[in-house]
Simulated scan of single mutants.
Amino acid sequence: MQKKISSSRIAERKLRDREARRAQILSVARRIAEQEGWPSVTVRRLSDEISYSQPVLYAHFGSREGILSAIAVEGFHELGVALEKARKRAKDIAMAEAIATAYLGFASSSPALYEVMFSLILNVPFADPGTPAEMQFAFAQLMELFRDEGSKAEVLSEMFWSSLHGMAELTRTKRLPRSREKARVRALIELLTCIRE
């Protein structure tokens, strides 16, 4: 009996250690990307920064792309949580504006994370049965805005998301002035209201 308890504790500790290593790898990769950009996030650089051998990193993620994909999925979870909080705080009439503001705020405050989620070519499936739950959760927050629209709900959610993504990217690259962001959000909500009527 004692051996079973001991081996169970050892297995739990190994699992905790593995999860802690995984979280550390992702955290360091995000820090490097925020400071220097994604090209600086290499397996060799991560290995040097956290003092794990490259084979340890490969054992966790398989490749550099595996690391970036894991960060992207983490980002979708964080985005989903931000959108859900905004949605739950807002009244029905202001929900779309609250979600739009939260989305654009997320993109602005975490530019490197947003970039890995949407701009880098990764092997993370969108709109597919294999789409990670974190990504489905984030999209579900947008779908909540259009839940009464029947068969149009998904398409309207995609249009709303596309518009927000366009605004986020054009603002990030200084094609659109940040000073008019609120006006653009209000105009987008007005357009969506016309489409829904």
Rank of each mutant, 00 (worst) to 15 (best):
residue 68 L to R: 01
residue 68 L to Q: 04
residue 68 L to W: 03
residue 69 S to C: 08
residue 70 A to M: 09
residue 71 I to N: 15
residue 72 A to V: 04
residue 74 E to D: 09
residue 75 G to T: 09
residue 76 F to P: 02
residue 78 E to A: 14
residue 79 L to C: 10
residue 79 L to K: 08
residue 80 G to K: 00
residue 82 A to K: 03
residue 82 A to W: 02
residue 83 L to C: 11
residue 84 E to T: 00
residue 84 E to D: 05
residue 85 K to D: 04
residue 86 A to R: 06
residue 86 A to N: 03
residue 87 R to D: 01
residue 89 R to H: 10
residue 89 R to C: 09
residue 91 K to E: 15
residue 91 K to S: 09
residue 91 K to G: 09
residue 91 K to W: 10
residue 92 D to A: 15
residue 94 A to I: 09
residue 95 M to N: 05
residue 96 A to F: 02
residue 98 A to S: 11
residue 101 T to M: 01
residue 106 F to S: 07
residue 106 F to A: 00
residue 108 S to A: 15
residue 109 S to N: 14
residue 111 P to G: 14
residue 111 P to C: 15
residue 111 P to R: 12
residue 119 S to A: 15
residue 119 S to D: 13
residue 119 S to L: 14
residue 121 I to Q: 07
residue 122 L to M: 15
residue 125 P to F: 11
residue 125 P to V: 13
residue 129 P to C: 14
residue 129 P to F: 09
residue 131 T to M: 12
residue 131 T to Q: 09
residue 132 P to C: 05
residue 134 E to P: 08
residue 135 M to P: 01
residue 137 F to W: 14
residue 139 F to D: 12
residue 141 Q to T: 05
residue 141 Q to Y: 07
residue 143 M to T: 12
residue 143 M to Y: 09
residue 145 L to P: 06
residue 146 F to C: 00
residue 147 R to Y: 02
residue 148 D to L: 03
residue 150 G to Y: 03
residue 150 G to H: 04
residue 152 K to T: 06
residue 152 K to L: 04
residue 152 K to G: 01
residue 153 A to S: 14
residue 155 V to T: 05
residue 157 S to M: 04
residue 158 E to M: 11
residue 158 E to Q: 11
residue 161 W to N: 03
residue 162 S to M: 08
residue 162 S to G: 08
residue 163 S to W: 11
residue 164 L to F: 04
residue 165 H to P: 00
residue 171 T to Q: 08
residue 171 T to A: 04
residue 173 T to Q: 13
residue 174 K to R: 10
residue 176 L to S: 02
residue 176 L to W: 05
